[in-house]
Amino acid sequence: TPSSGDIQLTEEAVRRYLTRKPMTTKDLLKKFQTKKTGLSSEQTVNVLAQILKRLNPDRKVVHDKMHFYLKE
C-alpha cells in the first residue's frame, strides 16, 4: 500500500541532509519523492525552493554538477 506522509519535506530535514554531505537538487528530490511525502510535484518544487532560499546553502561543483551543502 502507498504510504504517503511517511516523510515530511521540512527545513529541518533538508538541513540535516545538506549538513551530512553535498547533494544536488535531484538528490534532494529523491529523498522527498512525492509518493513518500504525499505532496504534488508542484508543491514539492515550491516548498523545496522556499526552503533552499531560507537555508541559502553553499554551492560547489562536483563531477560537473552543482551540489548544495551546509557547514555545521
Binding site: 544536488t24 528530490l29 510535484s41 518544487v45 525552493a49
Partner: peptide
C-alpha cells in the same frame, strides 16, 4: 519518472537563480 525529476530540479534551480 527521472525526466519528471529533471524538470522539477530545473524548476527549483531556476527559482533559486532568480533569487540570487
Amino acid at each position: 519518472s527521472s525526466s519528471e525529476a529533471d524538470e522539477m530540479a530545473a524548476a527549483i534551480e531556476a527559482e533559486l537563480n532568480d533569487f540570487i
